[in-house]
Design a protein around this nucleic acid. Structure first.
Length: 416
DNA sequence: TCTGGGGTCCTAGGACCC
DNA sequence: TCTGGGGTCCTAGGACCC
């Protein structure tokens, strides 16, 4: 049996842990640059605040209902996530961290799943202050579904188990087709046009028709919903095949100087991510573009791909090549909104070059030391060309404190 | 004024090979 | 009317996830 445990309204819940006066009140968290809504408390959902809505469009509701609004605080959420995951790991035989707020659990070999499940949910909530829910079923897709019901119906007390044919069919009949894991907006619309409205309807389709119209991806979902497990546990995720770092700017920028600071910073982040998974970049892509929403302004979207002479994870080298790419595509006279670096080709083996002029052993030792220091104090060591980001940094006007990772921002309790 | 960021997988079609 | 067959690799685009 598979379990899916996930944190309820994770980012909003993190903000509440350190600010209990927000309990019972509507809370929303914004995307990078304070752009749009990416997390909502139940109270905010009840007010009809939709996921993905641009922040400026809900100004009126914020004032009228007293909604608390936060910028994303990924340092805080990442740390809270690690705490949640480590508590879960203490109670179950196998754990697959699926995203910042979700994990699959392998319940094989556990005698009383209901008892263990309830215990895990209780321990996490007690240990971190983050409410979680658990769904259990014979396949991952059904576990996702069970999780939805664990959240939706209070009677389940946050743990819902689909362990009989009767429960499986009931769950499928109550589930709209678009709510199934693996069925997105496009395919949901396509299926609805053919008269398929629930997950149950979908499982009654002929396998050949599913295969033909939805490819083997849809076929897998179809099988999983029928109780045949096709998606296994993946305890140690394989190294990434592509690594991307990009950001929109807080304000639009025009000068090459600021753009190169941003590109250098993103390239340095990519290099660090590469080293974390012990990989090397074979080729990289640099892109810049203007603000597509501003139809009144001249537009420019461009990218450059560069092959590295020798596969590398060296910050200095990757930054050099990224800036070379930027020089190839930069044009004066546009107001840029976003820039990024993508490592498009990755290898696990550093093949040395015959005409290589870089002392790679020395550089690797240097990077190890840099990573060590930056591991303790983020961004303490960086290249001068990365600059200070004053002109292009993110907009984060509503940021909460990094309560758990910075002594200077630790929670302050006044006892009178 | 203001609209996120980082991934994966699959397919179709073209280029190229023997 | 007629134009091999079978295979690989690459890329762009589409779909999905959180």
């Amino acid at each position: 049996m598979f379990g899916l445990i996930d944190c309820n309204n994770f980012y909003a819940s993190c903000e509440r842990v350190f600010n209990p006066s927000l309990n019972g009140k509507p809370v929303v968290v914004l995307s990078n640059n304070d752009g749009c809504i990416i997390a909502r408390s139940n109270e905010a959902k009840a007010l009809g605040i939709k996921m993905g809505t641009p922040a400026f469009q809900i100004k009126e509701e914020v004032a009228r209902y007293g909604i608390s609004v936060f910028s994303s605080n990924y340092v805080l959420y990442g740390d809270m996530s690690a705490r949640v995951m480590s508590i879960i790991a203490q109670h179950v035989p196998e754990l697959e961290i699926y995203s910042i707020d979700e994990a699959f659990i392998n319940f094989d070999g556990i005698r009383d799943i209901s008892q263990t499940g309830k215990e895990v949910v209780h321990k996490v909530t007690k240990g971190t202050g983050i409410p979680v829910s658990l769904g259990v079923a014979p396949t991952k897709t059904l576990a996702k579904l069970a999780n939805k019901y664990a959240k939706k119906y209070p009677a389940y007390q946050r743990v819902c188990i689909i362990d009989t044919e009767e429960k499986r069919i009931k769950a499928l009949q109550l589930c709209e087709i678009g709510d199934v894991w693996g069925i997105g907006r496009r395919i949901a619309r396509k299926l609805q046009a053919e008269g398929i409205f629930t997950a149950y309807d979908f499982t009654l389709m002929a396998q050949s028709r599913v295969r033909k119209h939805l490819t083997i991806v849809g076929e897998r979902t179809w099988k999983e919903l029928r109780g045949e497990s096709c998606i296994d546990m993946d305890a140690a995720p394989p190294p990434k095949k592509q690594i991307c770092t990009s950001r929109s700017f807080g304000t639009m920028i025009e000068d090459f100087e600021s753009l190169s600071e941003a590109i250098a910073t993103h390239a340095a982040t990519c290099a660090r991510k590469l080293r974390e998974q012990h990989s090397y970049a074979v080729s990289i892509m640099v892109f810049i573009h203007t603000n597509g929403f501003r139809e009144d302004l001249p537009q420019y979207w461009q990218n450059a791909v560069l092959k590295l002479p020798v596969p590398t994870a060296d910050t200095i080298e990757i930054v050099q090549y990224a800036l070379k790419g930027l020089r190839q595509i930069f044009l004066q006279g546009f107001r840029y909104k976003k820039a990024g670096v993508i490592i498009t080709e990755i290898t696990q083996h550093a093949q040395l070059g015959l005409f290589d002029t870089v002392d790679r052993n020395k550089r690797e030792r240097l990077m190890t030391v840099v990573d060590q220091i930056n591991g303790e104090h983020a961004n303490r060591i960086k290249l001068a060309v990365q600059g200070n980001g004053r002109k292009w940094k993110l907009k984060q006007e509503l940021l909460s404190q990094r309560y758990t990772t910075d002594l200077k921002e630790i929670i302050n309790v006044n006892c009178k």
